[in-house]
């Protein structure tokens, strides 16, 4: 096995050839890159984020900064706005200046205020009652470990508490006694059962005293009597503008001054209005463009002047949306 080395007859030619090959080597090294994932490997929902790229009758009026740790729940009483964050409730006046601050202990998920000013702060598995003057009231702790309270509504007789962890809504009386569990599947009573795939379960009581509960997994709403009987329901599962998308939506609901339903969604964050009884879509308030980076919002509320308040987790502020001045010409879709 004899291998030999050649003397080159044309050293310059050989040199140039070798230099060229070596050059190619460094060129390939320098430009070496992997194929980038193509469009069919990318999750593209631009076509749906564009749906709400339409002109609406609404505009952003204001953004209220908050001096609170992880603000999570809002409640409106008259022209006072209450926001609950870790260990404190901040009370803002009509000009959004903080006028008072009540202390409690814990990291709240939700807040409700009763007509007489009593406040109910919902933690993941506890409710703390604060009297109208801010002094500590009772604590309701009869919740399970896996309870995850996400919403509270208080009427002058009852307190409704949504438990996303147990997929149920409780009716408590003011003394803190659990009276009824609402929304658990019951075939005899035609209650379909609230499906809660993610920690969002909201409820709201409108001026007529009707209790509306979101059924997130079914992408719609259900109305119940306080005794747990279901009255009516509507579901809109679609990515189109008039419906709700994803596994579980809407995430937040509230009512405006004229009794219409205001909803917000996660995934593609959209604020929309519905006629509540039949679930007819009315209009888009604000769409994905306004919340480009939010996955969901923390809470929504409607203030005394019928403006929509949104607690934005990205900025930890309250964003205020109102009707445009020139919005008399209805541009409802």
């Amino acid at each position: 096995m004899k291998e030999s080395v050649r003397e080159t007859k044309h050293p310059w030619l050989a040199g140039i050839a070798i230099a060229a090959i070596a050059g190619a080597y460094f060129f390939f090294l320098g430009t070496s890159s992997y194929r980038e994932p193509g469009a069919n490997l990318q999750y593209d929902i631009t076509q749906y984020t564009e749906i709400d790229d339409i002109e609406t009758r609404w505009e952003e009026l204001d953004e209220i900064p908050l001096d609170l740790d992880s603000p999570r729940g809002m409640a409106v009483q008259g022209d006072r706005l209450l926001v609950a964050g870790t260990n404190a409730i901040a009370v803002l006046d009509a000009h959004h200046n903080e006028i008072e601050r009540y202390a409690f202990e814990g990291e709240p998920n939700c807040l409700a205020i009763a007509p007489d000013g009593t406040m109910f702060v919902g933690m993941p598995n506890e409710v703390q009652v604060l009297n109208a003057d801010g002094s500590a009231g009772s604590r309701w702790t009869d919740f399970a470990d896996r309870s995850y309270l996400t919403s509270i509504a208080a009427t002058d007789k009852n307190v409704f508490i949504a438990d996303a962890g147990k997929h149920v809504v409780y009716r408590y009386n003011w003394d803190g006694e659990r009276k009824v569990e609402i929304g658990r599947r019951n075939d005899d009573l035609d209650v379909p059962g609230i499906e809660v795939p993610s920690p969002y379960l909201d409820l709201a009581v409108n001026d007529e005293g009707h209790l509306w509960i979101v059924n997130p997994g079914k992408l719609g709403l259900e109305r119940y009597r306080p005794n747990g009987d279901i009255v009516t329901s509507w579901y809109h599962p679609t990515l189109e503008l008039h419906g709700f998308s994803g596994c579980c939506n809407p995430t937040q609901i509230t009512f405006d001054k004229s009794g219409n339903l205001v909803t917000s969604e996660k995934g593609l964050v959209r604020l929309k209005k519905y006629e509540v009884t039949a679930g007819d879509f009315q209009e888009l308030v604000m769409g994905h463009k306004t919340f480009p980076k939010e996955q969901s919002v923390r809470d929504i509320a409607v203030d005394a002047e019928d403006r929509i308040l949104v607690l934005d987790p990205r900025t930890d502020t309250i964003r205020v949306f109102g009707m445009k001045e020139s919005a008399d010409v209805a541009t409802t879709t």
Partner: peptide, 25 residues
């Protein structure tokens, strides 16, 4: 595609943590 991706996902990744402990049905 990249814009859509960026706008949707990046923050979602951060706010996702809160949802982690949520129990299954």
């Amino acid at each position: 595609v990249i814009t859509a991706l960026g706008t949707l996902l990046v923050p979602a990744a951060m706010s996702g943590a809160a949802e982690m402990r949520f129990p299954p049905p």
